[in-house]
Amino acid sequence: MILFNYITAAILLVLGMYIICTQKNLIKIVLGMGIVDYGVNLLIVSIGYNDGGSAPIYSFPDLINGAVHHFVDPIPQALTLTSIVIGACVDAMALSLVIMIFRKYHSINSDDVRRLRG
């Protein structure tokens, strides 16, 4: 089952990179960045997944006794949360830059936004 997650994550990553590489519209590029982020987040959260595991809420004595040994790894979930927050900030900033670029260049086509070159 978890294999589907990995495959989906890979597809999302490739899709996101494809969008960034080929789409000329700057907003689409920002969306592509978002999709790459989601792919990575899905990858991380799948890594911590444990088939049939329970929520990781235990006390140390339980763990040491071996009373529970089948639970979902909490660390990747924390990592995913952090990563989602960062991704949201980056997307917000990228979109604000796109707005400013539109005001200045009157275009959001990446072929027009290339005054710095050579």
Binding site: V36, L43, L79, L97, I101, V113, R115
Partner: peptide, 22 residues
């Protein structure tokens, strides 16, 4: 536009790093 390019390429790099960490 420099900021935007930096952000796109930089966040691609960050995503690679994060995938590597994972």
């Amino acid at each position: 536009e420099a900021g935007f390019k930096y952000l796109v390429i930089g966040s691609l790099g960050s995503s690679f790093t994060l995938a590597g960490v994972a």
